[in-house]
Design a protein around this nucleic acid. Structure first.
Length: 549
DNA sequence: TCATCTCGCACATTTGAAGAGA
DNA sequence: ATCTCTTCAAATGTGCGAGATG
């Protein structure tokens, strides 16, 4: 069956929109759902220049960035048996968008400015989610977890550990303004957390995420099935960390390459792109430099990188100049091979888009302390590259926890260390952006993630509930639990219920919790799992869908 | 002295209200 | 009366750099 550009109305809006626009200029499109459940995956046939091309993918690739890679990895031709294969059970998968951009930052050691009033992240955390129950409501939240137990300092051209980290501050969750929303809405378009702000002001009460300067952090996404933000009954709870988006919080940029990347890519910083030309500030600099600098031998200043540049004397901003010789920049900032910090980033980057950390179940389940993520994030590491991996059969996760968590900075030069080779989909035919999603005003309770209300009977913001439970995991679990000492030298972790061995094992091996369908990718068969008498609604949905009891 | 932080600046985009026109 | 489009000002986001702080 073939559809014209108007014949795709039964598909999700995002997919329909993109395909329709693409089809206008490229002929007939056949979009057929793959699998008996008609959900999540599609077979698309595109007729272009008289030839047919077929692709199998799931809807989440239809994001501006992914769609740019029509001919690339995001869309791929189905393998021999893909269309006939029994479809895998859907599971909630999250992938970080703008991976190319993140990779650029990550390879240089991402820095994020934190200010008293709060500063947005750039690149913003933007994720695609699939596998949600389309008719269930979810809250999406983000917080930051410490990457390790180190504090860092910028030493000439590289980041170096500088003592032990300060104690991590109580987490503040940034709740996505459109929470709660139906699963189908979250899956429709990439979800941007661009309004998330970072601060170093511990006294702020306006919902900012509080971080320590010169500390390294990892963004973490929380998916909570709940009807509303004040709900005290949750369904499934899942969180994902994004190693590619690890960053060091700073009050001023240290690495000139990062500054240049920010200026080149952030629209708000466009004013600094032609910094050396006509800006008032630059004119002022010209006036000042003409007074200070001797007119002869302009390149004579010792140690100036300007020495290598051509006659233009207005390049005082060489540090961010795109005309700079690449090897010069690399030498200043430290090459990946010579910079342990960069190497560490790169090795994290190899792990893929994100790592599923844990399933829990509503109030009953344990909510990890932030430090737990240090032990669990990389251990599971299901790599959720949306399309290229969507139909791959479940298989064991590459067992390379050593590579993912370097034992120390010195290890980065070990033979096993490799530069990142993963990039986003190759550039291709640009496709139109999806329409802007209407903004939703936050309820009062969400605008301030402050202390709990004095009235215990009144509704409580979910962030407060989470914070309270995080502070008292043992209370949430109903049994004392066990605190483990520094795991591989990276802080403490809480394992509830006393059965710490099984719990830890399930975390680090990627075993599913409560329902084997939910994490079929990681180590099927090998991993111990926990028996959970409670079955979250989202699990029921999939169980019914696939007839699994 | 040094590393780090704060603040104000200029320049950019985003947002939303107001008005004109169909 | 309603809708769409354009214009414009205010709000907001950005990196820079001087000065403050510890």
């Amino acid at each position: 069956m073939f559809y014209d550009s108007e014949g795709l109305s039964s598909l999700p809006t995002c997919l329909t929109l993109t395909l329709s626009r693409y089809a206008k200029g490229n002929g007939v499109v056949d979009a057929t759902r793959v699998g008996k459940h008609g959900y999540g995956m599609f077979l698309v046939v595109i007729k272009e220049k008289g030839r047919y091309y077929s692709f199998v993918f799931n809807s989440l690739i239809f994001t501006p960035r992914r769609a740019a890679g029509w001919a690339g990895a995001a869309l791929r031709r189905p393998g021999r048996d893909e269309t006939q294969a029994e479809p895998r059970a859907p599971q909630i998968e999250v992938s970080l968008q703008d991976q190319e951009l993140w990779a650029k930052f990550s390879s240089r050691g991402t820095e994020m400015i934190i200010t008293k009033s709060g500063r947005r992240m750039f690149p913003p955390c933007k994720v695609s989610v699939t596998g949600l129950n389309p008719k269930a409501k979810y809250l999406l939240m983000m917080d930051m977890v410490p990457f390790d137990n180190n504090k860092y300092k910028w030493n000439r051209d590289r980041w170096e550990p500088s003592g032990l980290a300060d104690p991590h501050l109580p987490n503040r969750f940034f709740i996505h303004p459109e929470s709660p929303a139906l699963g189908e809405k979250w899956m429709q378009y990439p979800i941007s957390f661009h309004k998330l702000k970072l601060t170093n002001n511990t006294l702020n009460s306006s919902g900012l995420v509080v971080l320590h300067s010169m500390h390294k952090y990892l963004p973490r996404l929380h998916v909570v099935q709940a009807a509303d933000v004040c709900s005290q009954r949750w369904g499934a709870y899942l969180h994902f960390a994004f190693p590619d988006a690890a960053f060091i919080a700073v009050t001023a940029y240290q690495n000139a390459e990062i500054t240049k990347l920010k200026i080149d890519n952030n629209p708000f910083a466009k004013g600094f792109r032609d910094y050396g030309l006509n800006s008032k500030r630059q004119r002022d600099q010209r006036v000042q430099s003409s007074c200070k600098r001797p007119p002869e031998n302009p390149g004579e200043q010792s140690g100036s990188v300007n020495e290598s540049k051509t006659g233009d004397t207005d390049d005082a901003d060489f540090a961010v100049s795109s005309t700079e010789e690449p090897h010069t920049a690399e030498r200043r900032a430290g090459s990946p091979d010579s910079n342990p910090f960069i190497s560490a980033f790169m090795r994290r980057h190899e792990r893929g888009a994100c790592g599923v950390e844990e399933w829990t179940e509503g109030h009953r389940g344990p909510l990890l302390n932030s430090q737990d993520a240090l032990d669990t994030t990389c251990g599971l590491s299901s790599c959720h590259y949306p399309a290229s991996a969507a139909l791959q059969p479940p298989g064991p996760v590459p067992p390379s926890s050593d590579q993912r968590f370097p034992q120390g900075w010195g290890d980065s030069r070990a033979p096993g260390a490799q530069p990142s080779t993963s990039g986003g989909p190759p550039g291709g035919l640009p496709l139109p952006l999806p329409p802007r999603v209407s903004r939703v005003r936050l309820p009062e309770s969400l605008e301030t993630a402050g202390p709990l209300t004095s009235d215990p009977s009144g509704p409580r913001p979910l962030a407060d509930i989470l914070n309270r439970i995080r502070d008292k995991p043992e209370a949430a679990q109903g049994s004392p639990g066990v605190w483990h000492g520094p795991g591989r030298g990276r802080g403490y972790s809480f394992h509830p219920g006393g059965s710490s061995a099984g719990y830890l094992s399930s975390l680090t091996t990627g075993a599913s919790v409560g329902n084997s369908l939910l994490d079929v990718r990681a180590n099927p068969g090998n991993a111990p799992s926990l028996e959970c008498p409670y079955r979250a609604p989202v699990m029921d949905f999939y169980s019914n869908l696939y007839g699994v009891k």
